[in-house]
């Protein structure tokens, strides 16, 4: 495997809620510009881990750095360097497309000029220029998803976290969305994506599979399929889940 500069490092990441261990000694590293898939069934601890990496939640123990900053002491710096897209797409439904861009640009401290330029760039690329002044709730779900993703990378973060970004959209739109993800990764932005669609896992550079709070497997999809002697990621996941 090619050696990349790492941008997220987690050593023995543990998070406990009382007696319940949500994340049990997670060890992983994500390279710069990598598309890292973070897989697991609902309740396996994906969201807890992503919250810790985004600086929303404090880990119980472990050494974790994101974009070179410590998650215990440098949360503010981390927040400036990451983008986040939630599974709900998180757009303001009653604002127009441009108002959403202006608002998110504003909270990341972009200048008016930057906001205008970046908005035009994204709308042009998505072919949604003529919908600039349409209110979000009049748009179809697939467009909202793409807009939400554009907003997450509007401020040119070094890492973008996507929390189940393809929930509820049709296969064609999902495919198009992954094209966008590839493009972003090519530009050098690291993509950290959680999903429970196993076919999507095939698109990732490397994947980690979580079962009951532990990482059971972590490698490229190819290697994992060979190791577990199955022909799809679905098979890998089933074998791991049964074992667990």
């Amino acid at each position: 495997m090619e050696q990349r500069e790492s941008i997220i490092e987690a050593i023995n990441l543990t998070k406990k809620f009382g007696n319940f261990v949500a994340n049990d000694n997670l060890n992983f590293m994500v390279g710069k510009g990598e598309i890292f898939g973070f897989l697991g069934a609902n309740g396996a601890g994906k969201t807890t881990a992503i919250k810790i990496l985004c600086g929303l939640s404090r880990p119980t123990s472990g050494n974790i750095t994101v974009a070179g900053f410590d998650v215990y002491t440098e949360r503010e710096k981390i927040k400036k360097n990451i983008g986040y897209m939630s599974q709900k797409f998180s757009l303001y439904e009653d604002l127009t497309v441009f108002e959403n861009f202006r608002f998110y640009g504003g909270i990341y401290g972009l200048s008016k000029k930057e906001i205008r330029e970046r908005t035009n760039y994204f709308l042009d690329k998505l072919g949604l220029m003529e919908y600039k002044d349409k209110v979000i709730n009049e748009l179809p779900l697939g467009w909202k998803q793409k807009l939400a993703f554009s907003l997450a990378i509007l401020h040119k973060p070094r890492i973008v976290f996507l929390d189940e970004p393809t929930g509820g959209v049709d296969p064609i739109t999902r495919r198009q969305f992954w094209d966008m993800i590839y493009e972003v990764a090519n530009d050098g932005i690291t993509v950290f994506v959680t999903t429970h669609y196993m076919d999507e896992a095939e698109y990732c550079g490397r994947v980690s599979i979580m079962v009951d709070g532990r990482i059971e497997a972590l490698d490229t999809p190819e290697t994992l399929k060979n190791k577990y002697e199955v022909d799809s990621m679905d098979g890998v996941f089933l074998k791991l889940a049964r074992k667990g």
């Binding site: 927040k79 998180s90 757009l91």
Partner: peptide, 13 residues
């Protein structure tokens, strides 16, 4: 409810 709070919390605000 809309999930926008999460995004705001992740932001530098």
């Amino acid at each position: 409810e809309m999930g926008t709070m999460e995004v705001l919390l992740v932001s530098p605000l």
